[in-house]
Nucleic acid binder design. Structure first.
Length: 506
DNA sequence: CGGATTTGACCTGCGC
DNA sequence: GCGCAGGTCAAATCCG
């Protein structure tokens, strides 16, 4: 007779945990508690007891001895098959009954021990991988700073606007490094650009970091800094832009598409709903929210389900926060401001033209999985809008695409080592439960620290330097630890990339 | 009771 | 100028 795990209920688990002294702390301690119970079992006591030769759930009511049942429950809880003599078997003598029973229990215990050992090894493996991924993430953060500074230098030297020349330089560097190190993955090529920098360049980077802050003040912003910067003296490029630049900035939007069963995604901010409308062409109502984290915060967002696929939630952000934000929210807000910056700066001169065509060397270097992808900026929408697609189309990656949805492009390849998987991840609370793009559970720690990592490939450096990336990564990982809602984490990671992308164009 | 949500009215911009 | 659609307001209502 086999006992299915379906029969295992929560009270069984609780019973088991009470019996084992477990039930507190992480899986490891739980497993340890279970291990302890196995070793502490009193075989002789069981041998001397006179219980019927059955130990299934159904029979428990007739079996007053809880010790045996607890062990059976434990076996069931860890997926063992509990074997008991068939009911219709000829009754055995009392001595024979006990003997068979003891043998069965012994077998179960051995199986339990083996199973626990397996679980323990799996846990150890997961922790090791988490540690490795965190180290990798830290490495990326470090090296990103150097790469960013070098990229800014190139931009300055090349006049900033000649993107293709910069792409060539980056590509040349990547090739050079690949030859030197025999790197195999694109991710590594970018990550390891730092060693290729000379000491002179490194020192120049330090100088640049100050200049960068001046030259890109309006883009080197956390969410709360955006409006402050708007009132400060404009950068050279800003001064060259049209007078209604600020107004346009207010109107520009960033749209995030993501699969979610929840009413709205959890982006770390507090929102108050102030309206709802049925928009034309979509039977699903559009909800209007206002940020309530501070009085007078101008940030608003619209949340609407996609007409074609109602499992897709479209969240559109507008404006910039006038207050400090929690890490996850700050990262999300950076997405907005940075993406808007990218869009505006790009569209002022190259509206409706590809930013990263399939012929782009940089695109080829950074988009190895989508060689035919094209990045577009469209000016056809009422407001400049960038749409970030996190709906997780099979075999695809997060996509930035214009509001017109023309030829979506991929800009955020995960490294070979941290590929998105279909591992279940999410919360069933009132907020987001994402199923579209999910990261392997191996990327997460076993409950102690956030370890969601992806080797985000910086196509464009961020003027704020490694600190910004580190902060964002920190925000992402912290968000994992504090609130395992993956939405905020993923958004934070992507915003990190987008911030660099946007600022690099300024 | 206070904060959040709902919902109809109103405002505004745009195209014809 | 008119109508339409998107966006916002604010009173009513809900809910913990």
């Amino acid at each position: 007779m086999e006992i299915s795990r379906d029969l295992i209920h929560e009270d069984d688990l609780q019973t088991t945990e009470r019996a084992t002294g477990g039930g507190s702390g992480d899986e490891g301690s739980k497993a340890a508690g279970m291990r302890g119970t196995v070793h502490e079992m009193d075989f002789f006591a069981m041998k001397e007891s006179s219980r019927p030769p059955t130990s299934t759930r159904m029979d428990r009511a007739r079996v007053p001895d809880l010790n045996l049942n607890k062990e059976v429950d434990l076996a069931m809880n860890i997926g063992l098959q509990v074997v008991t003599p068939a009911r219709d078997q000829a009754p055995m003598s009392p001595v024979g009954n006990k003997s068979v029973e003891i043998e069965l229990i012994g077998l179960n215990i051995i199986g339990m021990i083996e199973k626990l050992e397996e679980m323990r090894e799996e846990l150890a493996g997961a922790k090791e991988e988490n540690r490795r991924l965190r180290e990798s993430l830290s490495d990326v953060a470090d090296k990103y700073g150097s790469l960013r500074a070098h990229f800014m230098k190139l931009l300055q030297e090349r006049g900033g606007g000649k993107l293709h020349q910069v792409e060539d330089e980056v590509t040349r560097r990547s090739h050079q490094l690949e030859e030197e190190e025999g790197g195999s993955t694109v991710a590594r090529q970018f990550i390891d650009l730092r060693p290729a920098l000379s000491a002179k360049e490194e020192s120049h980077n330090t100088e640049l970091s100050t200049d960068d802050q001046d030259n890109s003040a309006h883009t080197n912003l956390d969410a709360g800094e955006m409006e402050v910067a708007a009132s400060q003296p404009k950068t050279t490029q800003q001064q060259q832009q049209s007078p209604d630049h600020e107004a346009t900035m207010k109107k520009a939007r960033v749209s995030v598409r993501a699969r979610s069963e929840a009413r709205m995604i959890n982006d770390g901010c507090h929102w108050r709903k102030y309206g709802q409308k049925i928009a034309k062409g979509n039977s699903c109502p559009r909800a209007y929210y206002r940020c309530t984290m501070a009085d007078g915060c101008p940030v608003r967002k619209q949340v609407q389900r996609c007409a074609e696929d109602r499992s897709v939630l479209i969240t559109t952000y507008e404006g910039t926060h006038n207050h400090p934000l929690p890490p996850a929210a700050a990262a999300m807000a950076r997405t907005t401001s940075a993406a808007v910056s990218m869009l505006l700066s790009g569209s002022t001169s190259t509206a409706d033209q590809p930013l990263l065509g399939s012929n782009s060397l940089l695109a080829k270097r950074t988009l190895p999985l989508s060689s035919a992808s094209v990045a577009m900026i469209s000016s056809s929408a009422p407001f400049p809008t960038i749409s970030l697609d996190l709906t997780g189309v099979p075999n695809s990656l997060p996509q930035w695409r214009p509001s017109t949805n023309i030829d979506p492009f991929r800009v955020l390849p995960f490294s070979n080592g941290v590929a998105p998987s279909l591992a279940s991840f999410g919360h069933h609370d009132q907020q987001s439960h994402f199923s579209g793009l999910q990261m392997s559970t191996s990327c997460l720690t076993a409950g102690d620290e956030g370890g969601a990592t992806s080797e985000l490939l910086p196509m464009k450096p961020h003027p704020s330097g490694p600190r910004s990336l580190a902060e964002t990564v920190s925000a992402a990982t912290a968000a994992v630890a504090d609130d395992p809602n993956f939405t905020a984490v993923l958004s934070a990671a992507i915003s990190s990339f987008m911030n660099r992308e946007g600022d690099g164009r300024e």
